[in-house]
Structure formats: C-alpha cells, structure tokens
Simulated scan of single mutants.
Amino acid sequence: MAWRRGQAYGQDLRDRVLAADGEPIGEVAERLSVSPSYVVKLRARLRETGEREARPQRNQVPLRLAPMLSALRTRATSDATVAELRARSEAEHGARVSHQVMWKVLTRLGLTLKIGGSALPSRTAPT
C-alpha cells in the first residue's frame, strides 16, 4: 500500500530511520525516500519522549452540527428523511450541510433511518 497524505508512515520504516542513528540526515532521507525533516522530527521525538510509534491521528475539526445534536437525535428517531433533517437544520439553526455530512452525523450518533419503500421489487426474487 502506498503512502497517502494524512496517513502515518509504517512502523517498519520508522524503525529503519531510527536504526540509522549515526548516519547523516540527508543520506538517511535519500536512502529511505523520506524527507529530511521527517528524519529530524522522528529522531527528536525519540530523544525527547522516547516514543517510537506513531500517535493516533485525531480530527481537530469541530462538528458543524454540534450545537443541535440533541435536536437531531430526537428528530431522527421519528420518520424524518435526511432531506427533511437538512431542511430543518437550515431553517431553525442556519446550518446548511450536504446530504453526506448529515449522514455522517447520524452515523456518529448511532442512528439509522428507514429506507423508503419506493424501490422496485427485485427481479430475482420468487414471485
């Protein structure tokens, strides 16, 4: 798996960087295909805190719908659709959010909505 932005490097790479302690920073960075600043920061963290592992990543962005979570919890337990919840949040609280954001908030609250019965019946089901 290739490294992606916002994702920590693997522990094996961290261990290889830290194992090359006496070598110059530039050589280690070039040989292991990481930036020199990564090598410096990793060595400094080991020296200052003794930690070799990546810390858990945390989302520092507060929820846009945080002030109205209790209202959402009560309304979502009724037969409200996501579109209705979005319309109410905009009308009552001035918070305009996308369909996906509303779903994520409902999932975080542990709530599920009923799927409407407007879908066509399956062709593979026995009739």
Rank of each mutant, 00 (worst) to 15 (best):
V40R: 15
L42I: 08
L42H: 11
A44C: 05
A44W: 08
R45H: 08
R45C: 14
L46D: 07
R47M: 13
R47W: 07
T49F: 14
T49C: 14
T49D: 15
G50F: 11
G50V: 07
G50W: 08
E51L: 11
E51Q: 13
E51K: 12
R52T: 15
R52A: 14
R52L: 11
E53D: 04
A54F: 00
R55L: 04
P56H: 03
Q57P: 05
R58D: 01
N59P: 10
N59K: 13
Q60D: 04
V61K: 03
V61Q: 11
P62H: 08
P62M: 07
L63I: 00
L63V: 00
R64N: 13
L65G: 02
A66Y: 02
A66P: 03
A66K: 05
P67K: 07
P67M: 04
P67E: 10
M68D: 07
M68N: 06
M68L: 08
L69D: 00
A71M: 09
A71L: 04
A71T: 06
R73F: 08
R73Q: 12
T74F: 10
T74G: 05
T74P: 03
R75K: 03
R75D: 01
R75P: 00
R75E: 00
A76C: 03
A76I: 04
T77L: 14
T77I: 14
S78A: 12
S78E: 11
S78T: 13
S78P: 09
D79A: 13
D79K: 10
A80H: 08
A80M: 06
A80Y: 02
T81P: 00
T81M: 00
T81V: 02
V82N: 10
V82K: 13
A83E: 09
A83D: 09
E84S: 01
R86L: 02
R86Q: 03
A87P: 04
R88I: 09
R88V: 04
R88N: 02
S89K: 01
S89V: 10
E90F: 02
E90K: 14
E90G: 08
A91L: 06
A91F: 01
E92H: 03
E92C: 02
H93K: 15
H93D: 12
G94P: 13
G94Q: 05
G94V: 02
G94T: 07
A95V: 14
A95I: 05
A95K: 08
A95Y: 10
A95S: 11
R96W: 11
R96I: 09
V97G: 08
S98T: 15
Q100R: 15
Q100H: 14
M102E: 03
K104D: 13
V105D: 01
L106G: 09
L106K: 04
L106V: 10
L106C: 11
T107K: 15
T107H: 13
T107E: 10
L109D: 05
L109P: 06
L109K: 04
G110S: 13
G110V: 14
L111Y: 02
